[in-house]
Simulated assay, not measured.
Amino acid sequence: MSLLRSGLFVAVLVTLYYLAPLDRPLDLGTWIGFVLGLLVFGATIAWQVRAILGSNVPRLRAIQAFAVGLTLLLLLFASTYIVIAHSASDSFSEPLSRTDALYFTVTVFATVGFGDIVPRTEVARIVTMIQMIMGLVALGLVAKVLLGAAQEAVQRRGAGPAAEPGFTGSPENPGSAR
């Protein structure tokens, strides 16, 4: 049920991305919104860590938190790329639709970099560099914090990993199936 709820939340976020009015100019308000979005991402991760620590299924909760947090981060950057492309059509090597912006965001995050869409202006390149750094932070630090919170919650309960509902491994070899 909780995986379904996470999937639904991700679907709602993506739907909001496609419906949001992003055809505004690139101005101070845009940058304030971008910084606020990054702060919301950080607050979401902090809130999720607290929820993981109090959860009956902390590992599952950590996976859900990562999925929702990653979606928030990717959509924040895709939205910013759309605003940049709308304000200056030469910012990228081709015009960006919302799907193109999301595709570009995912290829940057995954460090694939096909080269079919390339940032051309200084502003677009700066935001892309920020995304690269945030992607590394998200994969490294955030994953470590979320999984560490899940591990701490399991240990705090005084039970081994096998006591967690939905766990399919053995205490001796947690990754193996029973």
Rank of each mutant, 00 (worst) to 15 (best):
A138K: 12
G113E: 01
Q131K: 08
A101L: 14
G113Y: 13
I126C: 00
T121R: 03
L75Y: 04
F77Q: 03
G115D: 01
F109P: 01
G166Y: 13
F114P: 05
K144I: 12
A78H: 05
E122N: 10
T107N: 04
A162Y: 09
S79A: 11
A150R: 03
P165I: 15
A149I: 01
G140V: 15
F104P: 09
S170E: 04
R157C: 03
I130K: 05
V154R: 10
M134L: 11
G113M: 08
V142H: 01
P171E: 08
V106Q: 11
S93E: 10
V154Q: 09
G140D: 13
R156G: 11
L147G: 14
T121W: 04
V106M: 13
S97K: 00
T111W: 12
V142M: 00
E94F: 11
S79Q: 12
L76M: 01
K144R: 10
T168C: 09
V137N: 09
S91D: 11
S89D: 15
R156P: 01
V137I: 15
F114E: 07
L136Y: 08
L136N: 11
I126Y: 09
A149P: 10
R157F: 00
P171H: 06
D90N: 05
V127I: 01
E94N: 15
P95E: 10
G169Q: 05
